[in-house]
Simulated scan of single mutants.
Amino acid sequence: MATACCLCYVEPQNLTGALEFLLLGFSDDPELQPVIFSLFLSMYLVTMLGNLLIILAISSDSCLHTPMYLFLSILSLADIGFTCTTVPKVILDIKTHNRLISRVGCLTQLSFFNLFGCLDSVLLTVMAYDRFVAICYPLHYPVIMNPRLCSLLILVSFLISLLDSQLHCLMMSQLTFCINVEIPHFFCDPPQLLKLSCNDTSTNKIFMYFLGAIFGGIPVSGILFSYTRIVSSILRVPSTGGKYKAFSTCGSHLSVVCLFYGTGLGVYLSSAVSRSPRKGAVDSVIYAVIVPMLNPFIYSLRNRDIKRALQRLLNRLVIFFTYLLPPHSTAGSLGFMLEDTREQLVYLLHQR
């Protein structure tokens, strides 16, 4: 992550035009600001809590130390980074009534947004390959998906995402902006920056579409190829129960894939067609905030192993805070709160 910031840094003497941008956000109406603040804060907390619980549940349960859940924990980590890139800035802007962001800050935000967004995309492709090997070559699965290959896939995913991030950052750092640039968005979105540049951006747009085709098209092609082979293999299974079991192992991942790519494609298509920049900002909330928030629910509510791991994790937390700490302390009180939370979560998981 530090590399992303360092490579995006632009020396002050080379800067031309605007040194600061104004993020317009969603609305200037003072009455709507508390509503927007509460909405973003609640979504941010839910996203952080849900993804952290997934990571803790997987790391603390030895039964989940498999490639599928390893990739899921990295995906949750990427979702946390993806959300932290934009949402805290929105919350801080509303609280301080200051929507300015420096050019270096804008490039840094853009860099991390592309880094974690691309990492999400590549990890979903890796998870599709994992399901492909598990269903099409079940007997060879432990040999093929060995720890060395899993580590290599994670490393390559990060390096590919870092490359995409730095290419976008390098392209945007070459642009010249006019003074007092207003971005009709809640974060530094590359298409919006291209529209506001004083340069001729036709070459930049072609380059951006090329990057999108490479770093977005190849993962999508890999997912489609994997699921084509998976469906073909499942259809050859003679029993109905076997087919259902095979499909159920892919259900959560397929839901996340459709949600991620469907909303992302919809946002950028609508921004290209729509003439209202503010509408594009509202649409981007689905892609940049809501999708990372929903991923933990999709994987936990449709997966019995994750449910059991979450219950065991909450049980250990309740025991720690309730019995190992003084009952009248803040931590001890937290134990009783966790007990109530655990009972509600257990009831919810059983209902599902």
Rank of each mutant, 00 (worst) to 15 (best):
S300E: 02
F320E: 06
G25Q: 01
V220E: 08
F321N: 12
P184V: 04
L159M: 07
H328V: 15
T108W: 07
L194G: 00
C63M: 12
E31I: 15
D28N: 15
L107D: 01
N51L: 04
I218Q: 02
Y137A: 12
A78N: 06
V35C: 08
Q109G: 10
I94M: 10
D93Y: 05
V143N: 12
L193C: 02
S255I: 10
V285Q: 01
P142C: 04
F336S: 15
K195E: 08
F186K: 05
A78W: 03
L235S: 13
L349N: 03
V35L: 12
T330M: 15
L92Q: 11
T66M: 02
L56Y: 04
K243L: 02
G216S: 03
F260M: 05
P292R: 03
C106R: 02
L70M: 06
L124Q: 08
R131N: 06
T201G: 00
T203S: 09
I154D: 03
C136A: 10
A18L: 03
T3C: 10
C84R: 08
G335L: 11
S221N: 08
L56G: 03
Y227S: 09
S165A: 12
P238E: 03
P296K: 01
L175F: 00
G117P: 06
C6P: 08
T201E: 02
M145S: 10
G81H: 11
D340I: 14
L39M: 13
H97S: 15
K243R: 14
L39Q: 10
S27C: 10
T176Y: 01
P219L: 00
E343D: 12
D189F: 10
I223N: 03
N51T: 04
F260D: 01
G222T: 01
I179M: 11
L119F: 05
P138G: 04
F132L: 14
S329W: 15
C63R: 15
P191G: 01
M1W: 09
L115Q: 08
S59W: 10
V273F: 13
G105H: 00
V256R: 01
C136N: 05
Y69S: 05
M68T: 11
D340R: 15
D79S: 14
I183S: 03
S197V: 01
